[in-house]
């Protein structure tokens, strides 16, 4: 039995190291590579990954930062180039024409698409243990029955934007047992919510978005004294900024934390 396990792990690590010089032309794919693939196997990531706003994994020194242009990647001779569904399509076409291996990974805007994205990434890279762990975690959470809505929640993002039906954030709230008040008011995708509406709707949980530490008037609503009761009553949850640009990294954790928050709120009530 031990020998089989050893053989399997050897096979897994062999397939995980199939590519030695991986390049990415997409911010989210950058972050997944930096989080789950050994640094020495990454040839290039996009310049956005060097920005503090987007960096969720440490950036190796001397890594090449590309701006999505084909001529930057050719001299690096990558053996695998990952590209997203929309950005840098012209560069991807050119690199394919030059005979390089370019794999397109779909973007994810829902829980189903998230699973498809992780599966596509696994197909491209081979079975990486951290990626598989993330997949497993997500599958386990999604396999659980959707709980009845026991509490209400409302997302208040920068510039008073809220998230309604059809958004990943809404699905996470619903899966965690929250009734999303924006969706109940008929918001499809994105909508606007004023502070007055936040107060009038009285959500059990107010969900802020992003951990932006730099000053912006876009976040002025978050600082308004009228939300003090939510802060004092621990009825506040902040979605990580990564959920906006690379949900695969954090969706499982967010779902777990939201579920815990709902349980606590219900117990308090």
């Amino acid at each position: 039995m031990k020998q089989i396990l050893l053989l399997t792990s050897l096979l897994l690590s062999a397939s995980a190291t199939a590519y030695e010089r991986i390049a990415s032309l997409n911010l989210c794919l950058d972050q997944m590579l930096l989080s789950w693939v050994p640094a020495e196997k990454i040839a290039s990531v996009t310049w956005l990954s060097a920005d503090d706003h987007y960096r969720s994994a440490p950036l190796p020194e001397n890594i090449h930062l590309n701006r999505g242009r084909a001529e930057e990647l050719v001299p690096l001779a990558p053996d695998l180039i990952l590209v997203g569904e929309f950005g840098a399509q012209r560069a991807a076409r050119r690199l394919r024409d030059l005979g390089m291996k370019v794999v397109s990974i779909p973007d994810a805007y829902s829980l189903k698409q998230l699973q498809e994205q992780l599966a596509a990434l696994e197909n491209a890279l081979g079975p990486l243990p951290p990626l598989q762990k993330q997949q497993r975690q997500l599958q386990e959470l999604l396999a659980r029955p959707v709980p009845e809505s026991e509490a209400s929640a409302l997302i208040l993002s920068a510039n008073n934007i809220t998230y309604g039906r059809g958004m990943l954030e809404h699905q996470l709230l619903a899966r965690a047992g929250f009734a999303n008040l924006a969706a109940e008011r008929g918001v499809e995708q994105l909508g606007r919510v004023s502070l007055e509406e936040v107060i009038a709707l009285q959500p059990d949980l107010l969900v802020l978005y992003g951990g932006e530490s730099d000053f912006a008037l876009a976040h002025l609503a978050f600082r308004h004294p009228v939300l003090k009761s939510y802060i004092d009553g621990h009825r506040l949850y902040t979605l990580p900024a990564e959920l906006g640009f690379c949900p695969a990294l954090v969706a499982a954790d967010v779902l777990k934390q939201l579920t815990e928050k709902r349980k606590k709120l219900v117990a308090q009530q």
């Binding site: 920068a158 510039n159 730099d214 912006a216 008037l217 876009a218």
Partner: peptide, 25 residues
């Protein structure tokens, strides 16, 4: 050059003004 991602779009506020989300403070 401001570190905030929203800074550039907020030039509209500084040029045209706004009273939204203001409080007693």
């Amino acid at each position: 050059y401001a570190p905030s991602m929203f800074a550039m779009q907020e030039i509209v506020f500084w040029l045209l003004g706004s009273l939204a989300n203001r409080g007693w403070d």
